[in-house]
Design a protein around this nucleic acid. Structure first.
Lengths: 336, 336
DNA sequence: ATGAAAGCGCTAACAC
DNA sequence: GTGTTAGCGCTTTCAT
């Protein structure tokens, strides 16, 4: 592959001139410039970003760490980050952790070694070791705050509470008294929070003689199916089921339908995420919305701000959630 | 950030020794080695892959170019490539082209400038300009051959024909005579091929008095919905609909259900992809399977082979497709 | 068993 | 307006 020296030779100039033509960093007479450009063209020159990065200490690349690209939560978030990145002439290095802290550590290490300009930590498997790793490296970073760990780091967080309260309110108004919650994998922070928010919200209705139960899912279709099968075996089948994400809700819904339950007549269902599918499926899914695309954009904006100005005060945004009412919920027929 | 010089100073050795300890490239006495390791630990040393890449000319990074991460075709493919990459100590740089040739060219350029060791071109928006760009750069590469462009490049291709023929055979045996096909966006190679394969397959049944029609979709849920609405307005509603991918089929199915058609009783549906959702949805989707995970693995294996041995003969694999029979198809009630 | 130094491709300060 | 050159962090040949 051609380099400055090759270009310089053909164009009969010094490598400094080549550099300045390429980067527009000082005046070069149109004639000289043309010689250089022609030589580049002829050699099909491609800049070597490693060399440049080494020389100037910046790479215009940022790392985006997520848990699992197959989880429909992420693609839109990724899209959001990329859009902003592209506008600002940055490239995004996407990395999966597969929900594995150790793999996450490796990933972070690989990114740091690549001297990327910043890291977006959107993976939900983040423990102190990972955060420390990133902080130690002094690389710019922003993160999704899945718990409320309250570190002084640029971050975005979710307020599930609003949406969950709204949902419960809705269900209770409709007469539901036995409400199940299908959670994500219990070891994941993101599941725990949603469970806690659910339980917390229930406390407001102490006087209503409410009953609930948590069934563990896996945030995937399969887990929703399995959980639904478990629910069908209970002696008291709930009249409403809330789910930790939409995939879970959709999986559960299919199993209920398969077993002759009518939705929402026999059983109401609420999801969380508002993935595209949930509004198209019949019956379409009542769900708590999370704007993943906007979240992605915000994360990247935060990171670029930070890269451009390191003494910015800590940036934080909390994304509110809200209930989207669709067909999968109706009043509890038993009280009508 | 610490570098060899810092380590060398603390450990009281030369930078050459530091390098050899880190890379295990020559013998170093255990005592010296320990000094170096301690110094590294103390400084929280992180290798600079740019500098290393510049020095040795390899980066252990490959680029994976896809069309759109939100298209469920890709996540599993990505997963497959990453698994193989990781096993071989490679990292993957994932890039979207957003179905845009120009963006694709930029992406390729960015990858080449990053001196990645190879490129997997799995985006379906590939024209000659892109292929030439990659070939000119001399970077190792493998591609998904969406058309049959017959270039001498490592590639994998799909034989949709088998699966489509099998599907048509199945439908026709079941008595269907008016069969619609909801395609992807017509300007995309990948859509065109499936359409052609569908039409081609139909020719075998010239004597059967078959009728068909192609409706354009977009390979997304929305397009499936829209196409189904169009179909419902036709004067002769088909008894069977084949779709260019599963999302399309699922979207269409929901619209049919919404409009009171029973599936498969009133209308049979066949998809293509076999995404997870299709086996869980009620009624679950009969579809043509494509093993995206395996495709991803194969692509990365091809690329690594090529990187390790450039005079390998051209590698090619054709992935067969096959029909997965589920609930969304039954016999044409009109002939029973 | 270890060190000195050239060189990978690029940038930018300094010189003319 | 253009050229020379040191240096970014690392690898590796050649010495010792």
């Amino acid at each position: 592959m051609a380099n400055y020296k090759d270009i310089a030779k053909i164009a009969n100039v010094s490598i400094a001139t080549v550099s300045h033509v390429i980067n527009n960093t000082r005046f070069v007479t149109p004639e000289t410039r043309k010689m250089v450009l022609d030589a580049m063209e002829k050699l099909k020159y491609r800049p070597n970003l490693y060399a440049r990065g080494l020389a100037i200490g910046r790479t215009n690349t940022v790392g985006l760490v997520i848990s699992d690209i197959r989880n429909p939560f992420y693609p839109e978030l990724v899209q959001g980050t990329e859009e902003i990145a592209q506008k600002n002439n940055y490239n995004v290095f996407l990395c999966n952790t597969d929900y594995d802290i150790k793999k996450g550590l490796n990933t972070i290490g690989a990114l740091i070694s690549r001297k990327i300009d910043g890291i977006i930590l959107a993976s939900s498997q983040v423990d102190d070791s990972i955060v420390r790793e990133v902080l130690d490296s002094n690389v710019n970073f922003v993160m999704v705050d899945w718990g409320s760990r309250n570190i002084r780091v640029d971050s975005i967080a979710f307020d599930y509470m609003v949406g969950i309260e709204e949902s419960l309110d809705y269900l209770i108004t409709l007469g539901h008294r036995l409400i199940y919650f299908i959670s994500g994998p219990k070891e994941r922070k993101t599941s725990q929070i949603r469970i806690n928010n659910f339980i917390e919200s229930l406390k407001k209705y102490n006087n209503k003689n409410l009953k609930y139960k948590i069934i563990e899912g896996d945030h995937k279709l399969e887990g929703g199916c399995k959980a639904a099968k478990k629910i069908l075996k209970e002696k008291d089948i709930p009249t409403a089921v809330m789910c930790s994400n939409d995939l879970t809700a959709i999986g559960a819904m299919q199993v209920f339908i398969e077993n002759g339950l009518r939705i929402p007549k026999d059983i109401s269902i609420i999801g969380l995420d508002n993935i595209k599918l949930s509004e198209i499926l019949k019956p379409n899914l009542t769900t708590i919305e999370l704007d993943r695309y906007k979240i992605g954009k915000t994360l990247m904006e935060f990171l670029l701000n930070r890269i451009n100005n390191n003494d910015l005060p800590v940036q934080k945004v909390i994304f509110k959630t809200k209930l989207i009412k669709r067909e999968s919920v109706s009043s509890n027929k038993n009280i009508n």
